[in-house]
Design a protein around this nucleic acid. Structure first.
Lengths: 150, 150
DNA sequence: TATAGTTGCCCACAAAGTGTAAAAACGTGT
DNA sequence: ACACGTTTTTACACTTTGTGGGCAACTATA
């Protein structure tokens, strides 16, 4: 369990997103490397420690050519870019990244979510909507949840 | 990892496309050569550092004559021309190039995408459409993505 | 040779990105 | 509940980058 928990942070007017101190601690203590590779995934941004990202790259490179591989390259690999931290623990997101994640201009509210080996960054309103939909699905599956121990 | 990331830039009324500063840095620091060879590929424009382009040429030349080789020459090699930078970091695209890539007249919005050893330039709307289709495919392959570490 | 279109070069302005400092908010332990 | 240290946000100054426009040189066409 590396990255865990949700944090309601903000991006400033220049598009810098503050990453929770807990996640930065994980980066320096577990990975000894404060760099993040940020890509676009499923309407949000996904930030991987370099080490984890390289594992992903190797696996993708090992794939035979296929439409799936092309789609992965187009949608997930090409947009990926290293975003270094500044002294305040923030990363600068590019325009294209903010545009993709619905974080243009006036929108400052984000949620930063730990997801095992990566960190997800969402438009907070969008994330709330996704959660609502997930909860609706769960309501129809109470037996399955019970069996899982929830 | 040479060229990486997506950048929402513009072409001006004269057909000049600004290339992101990050890519220009890679050109001068890694290749020590600011020239780009621009060709047409898959509905967009592909720009190669001269050095990389020459590698491609050698490999194609080494092929035995075949319909495939002819097609490569016709569609990929012949249209290629060198596009030098102006002092503002832009390259001048020809009419034929803009026409091929769907960048006629009024269309100003492009996306410049790093793709390892080359730089792709797309009509932004077209690129968004391609991404959408890629993401649709990815949605049907969530198990495969998980296995790859995404 | 006149004309229109294209190309390259230059400048200038606006937008975006970077760095630093300080204030506000938060959490912890006493 | 209070004080303290940490974390996050705000604010401002400064630099870089991207974009638009002017102008002159060149090209092609008629």
């Amino acid at each position: 369990m590396l990255f865990q928990g949700e944090f309601n942070n903000a991006i400033d007017a220049k598009g810098r997103a503050s990453i929770p101190a807990k996640f930065r601690d994980v980066l320096s203590s577990v990975f000894a490397d404060e760099r993040l590779i940020v890509t676009q995934n499923d309407g949000g941004l996904a930030a991987y420690p370099v080490q984890e990202w390289e594992k992903v790259l190797e696996k993708v490179n090992a794939m035979d050519a296929s439409p799936l591989k092309d789609a992965i390259n187009l949608a997930l690999i090409s947009p990926a870019i290293e975003c270094p931290f500044d002294k305040q623990g923030r990363i600068q997101l590019t325009k294209a990244q903010r545009c993709y994640a619905g974080l243009e201009s006036e929108i400052r509210e984000i949620v930063v979510v730990g997801s095992i080996n990566k960190i997800m960054i969402w438009n907070r309103a969008m994330h709330a909507e996704m959660r609502k939909q997930a909860e609706n699905l769960l309501k129809t599956e109470s037996q399955a949840l019970y069996n899982l121990g929830f």
